[in-house]
């Protein structure tokens, strides 16, 4: 399993290294959307307190929009020339394939989220999101987001209605996660610390486990079908 896992990771990293498709798009959109939003906030002449409070929903909404664009085509190279069929026939564990995809998507998500937060904070002259607790929260939210998005992408590319299916399925599934993330970030910005005993924190933690288990259980049959 470790040999196959390493080989699959290497394959994905080589794809990024040689095409730069996902990382370049991620960084470009982070820069573009972060800059536009920051200038929008600057031009609104908001009170510093209001500006700080806006950072919570903005950083998550911008991440969701950018990640949808970035990951939208991230699976296409697997289907080109039937390569994914080669993986299925090779007898490699599809759970291993799923986990390798999760690792790569997680790293790209971290890069995208960090760039967005940095651009947004720097241009809006806000330090609200510069805390170790926000790093922990972000890591947890992305941990729940990644397996779900890998599963949904697999579902959408094996279906003819893929383009429609992805937003239709992702909206209700991602809503509780990003709502909880926004609520927790809001509290962190206003009170200066994360509320570990809140309902929203428990929800993010549960979704971390639930979406990972869903991915592990459903990804292999989705790819085989």
């Amino acid at each position: 399993m470790s040999g196959a896992f390493t080989a699959l990771l290497r394959k994905d990293f080589l794809y990024e290294l040689r095409t730069g498709q996902t990382v370049v798009v991620a960084l470009s959109f982070a820069l573009l959307l972060g800059t536009l939003t920051a200038f929008g906030i600057q031009n609104a002449f908001l009170e510093p307190v209001v500006r700080e409070r806006l950072m919570a929903p903005l950083c998550w909404v911008l991440f969701l929009v950018t990640a949808s664009i970035v990951f939208g085509r991230a699976f296409h190279f697997e289907r080109a020339s039937g390569a994914i069929e080669g993986v299925v026939v090779s007898g490699a564990s599809l759970v291993t394939f799923f986990l390798s995809k999760c690792v790569v998507f997680y790293l790209i998500s971290i890069l995208l989220h960090t760039s967005l937060v940095l651009v947004l904070s720097f241009l809006s002259q806000s330090e609200a999101l510069f805390s170790s607790e926000f790093v922990l929260l972000s890591a947890m939210v992305l941990f729940a987001y990644v397996p779900l998005v890998v599963l949904l992408l697999a579902l959408s590319f094996t279906s003819r209605l893929g383009a429609v299916l992805l937003p239709l399925l992702s909206l209700p599934l991602l809503f509780p996660l990003f709502f909880a993330a926004t609520e927790l970030t809001q509290v962190l910005v206003t009170e200066g610390e994360l509320n570990f005993s809140s309902f929203w924190f428990a929800l993010v933690l549960s979704l971390d486990i639930f979406y990972l288990l869903c991915g592990l259980a459903l990804f292999p049959p989705v790819i085989r079908d």
């Binding site: 394959k11 080589l14 040689r18 095409t19 190279f77 020339s81 039937g82 390569a83 069929e85």
Partner: peptide
């Protein structure tokens, strides 16, 4: 325990 398949498409990764 193992299958070798050769179809009409190459089933090769184009970036490798």
């Amino acid at each position: 325990s193992s299958i070798g398949y050769c179809g009409h498409v190459s089933m090769l990764y184009e970036h490798l």
